[in-house]
């Protein structure tokens, strides 16, 4: 199935904790525009908040960006968000994807929890090459 972007893309740069609110506001607006239900939208915004906070907490100087796109596939609309940073990367991805594993003093739910909240989740990371997480939520 082909996935096309509807041409609406937005980039939110992340550099401080105060940017999390902009990430959430943008995700919520895109979710509404794509016609996602309230629960699907809340899950997407919450997952986005967790991933953006990971950037603030773990990336170099907390710098990164989020690309937010409106999607269409087989008549369904959705929202895709790509979180990328040039931080240290995650050396042990298997551990990082398991519940309650944390190196930053949090609850350790950010990555595994975010994965459970969205329809599609993929992560590309490794020592020295930063981290990119892509999440997608589809409407009914």
């Amino acid at each position: 199935m082909t996935v096309s972007t509807e041409g609406v893309t937005q980039t939110v740069t992340i550099g401080a904790e105060s940017d999390l609110l902009r990430v959430r506001t943008t995700l919520r607006a895109e979710s509404q525009a794509a016609g996602l239900g309230l629960t699907a939208a809340t899950k997407l915004v919450t997952a986005g908040s967790e991933l953006a906070r990971n950037i603030v907490r773990y990336a170099v100087h907390g710098q990164g960006e989020v690309l937010i796109e409106a999607l269409e596939r087989g008549g369904k609309r959705g929202v895709r968000a790509t979180f990328s940073d040039a931080g240290p990367g995650i050396p042990d991805l298997e551990a990082a994807m398991s519940d309650n594993f944390t190196t930053g003093g949090g609850l350790g739910l950010g990555l595994p929890g975010s994965k459970r909240l969205v329809d599609e989740f993929s992560i590309d990371t490794g020592p020295g090459r930063g981290t990119t997480v892509v999440i997608t939520q589809w409407g009914r």
Partner: peptide, 13 residues
């Protein structure tokens, strides 16, 4: 809110 409760449970909180 129900949507928040569902989200928290799935998040693992």
């Amino acid at each position: 809110q129900p949507a928040v409760a569902i989200t928290l449970v799935e998040l693992g909180v």
